[in-house]
Write a protein that binds this DNA or RNA. Structure first.
Lengths: 269, 269
DNA sequence: GCAAAAGTGTTTTCTTTACACCCATGC
DNA sequence: GCATGGGTGTAAAGAAAACACTTTTGC
């Protein structure tokens, strides 16, 4: 039995609007150059062209306002579905954005999430949503490059300060150049990519970017395109071997030795 | 120049109250048993006895509602100061709690943070705030033990499911037994302790629990009391040696060999 | 045959773990 | 002297990095 204070009225207090934004990544493949070559992978980010002011015509992360019948996570998933058509994905918290003036419409706090999804697993059904290839170069001056499927190129520049090892909040990210991304979403994207890279200590996010069964070279390519660095095959295979098992199937038909297919091995601990 | 939609009124939309809660840990020392023995350390958590309904008389994490002139982080720090007197601490995001019915007063979202603070560095000035020794045993059935300074003992039992390696949100924590902690704060505390333990991959949180200079045994004891496991001295020293440097000073006066004092070495990387 | 990718083995280095041993002090 | 903690060394085991080599395929 819960008792409330006398004369308590929650509406006596000023309240912010609460929104969610979510950075969804996928891996897409180029068409193969020849029967011999593997197709190249690209890291892509799901963005929505804004149809209303403010920032009409610019790009934003899918998101929207929460309502009292759902949790913030549910809002993030619902809004992702409504704005893009992507559904059935688990999501992870990134950070809360609440700087004053971050949204010109007023006092609006955003809970930012991130996730990854297998390309084609769930279709983009909304007109204004589409994938953009991303490339992120981390440094004191970090650079985010966005390329749309019709070839338009955008470059966003950040100043990053603080020691990542200390704690996440110690890292400051300021956007220096940005001609295409609405609100403070450029900064959210930068943090999401940093988080995505750090998340590869374990292979689980990579598994979610691939079909149920995959070759180890595909898995390695996922790592390479996210970390933006080449890896040595033999070492990579040793590292991930505790997390995968052979399906017994084989993928043939290319101009080279057929490869074994693997699936995630969920350790019970 | 920012344009807003016509007839846009932010007050047309239903909005939640947004609060913060923060789990602040410290390390306290027992008086030494003899001139020979080191004093033992205890991990303690800062809690506030509620003076109002709901949950009047029960224990809660320091926190409160945000206002439009500050960010959520600023709210968390301000409320921490107002409710306890603790100030000047950096804080880290833990998670957002927004389950329906989590607060009987209505639709209230809480942004939970955690931090550590050196004992005595900042005084507890508020009457209802005090430190409670905590012991947390992690497992499928996790147990949190709280002991007040006048010896009162409380035991909170959780059911923990899901794989921590997968992603944080995949871990579910349900409170099974709880006779003393208000709201859903027991669950926040459990997550904070898990986070605190994971944070010791790097020594920075441990540094913030100790004075500017310290002995390596003190640093090791901080690790041991947080991780709730004994560590081997030689190995511990090798592990943290890249992060500390000698001050040149020595701590003498005890019934054993005097120990060198160290300070954190901030790597610029 | 050959280019491309699949896959394995080996050596070197570094890190982690476990344990043994000596040192310095106050009573 | 002795109990207590401070401090170092070393060997074994394990993980990470670098490289070399073999296998298998479609054209």
């Amino acid at each position: 039995m819960v008792i409330l204070p006398e004369n308590y009225n929650i509406n006596d207090y000023d309240r912010p609007s609460v929104a969610t934004d979510i950075a969804v990544f996928t891996i897409r493949k180029n068409p193969s150059e020849s029967y011999r070559h593997l197709s190249k992978m690209r890291l892509s980010l799901l963005m929505v062209k804004r149809t209303e002011e403010p920032y009409k015509g610019m790009l934003s992360l899918p998101g929207g306002f929460t309502v009292r019948t759902e949790t913030i996570e549910q809002t993030a998933k619902r809004k992702l579905y409504e704005k893009t058509g992507v559904k059935n994905v688990p999501i992870s918290l990134l950070y809360n954005s609440s700087a004053m003036g971050r949204d010109p419409r007023g006092w609006i706090i955003s809970c930012a999430y991130w996730t990854v999804v297998e390309n084609g697993q769930t279709d983009i059904t909304e007109e204004n949503a589409s994938w953009y290839d991303v490339k992120f170069t981390y440094g004191e001056e970090s650079i985010l490059e966005l390329i749309s499927d019709d070839g338009k190129y955008h470059r966003i520049v950040f100043h990053v300060s603080g020691n990542t090892e200390l704690y996440n909040e110690a890292v400051k990210i300021e956007t220096l150049e940005n001609d295409c991304i609405a609100f403070d979403h450029a900064e959210i994207i930068a943090r999401a990519i940093i988080q995505l890279r750090n998340s590869l200590d374990y292979p689980y996010p990579a598994f979610r970017l691939l079909p149920e069964s995959f070759t180890l070279t595909e898995l390695q390519q996922v790592y390479e395109v996210i970390l933006d660095t080449p890896l040595l095959m033999a070492n990579f295979r040793r590292k991930i071997s505790p997390y995968v098992e052979e399906t017994g199937e084989i993928e043939a038909g290319a101009g080279h030795r057929p490869s074994k297919l693997f699936r995630p091995l969920i350790k019970e601990k």
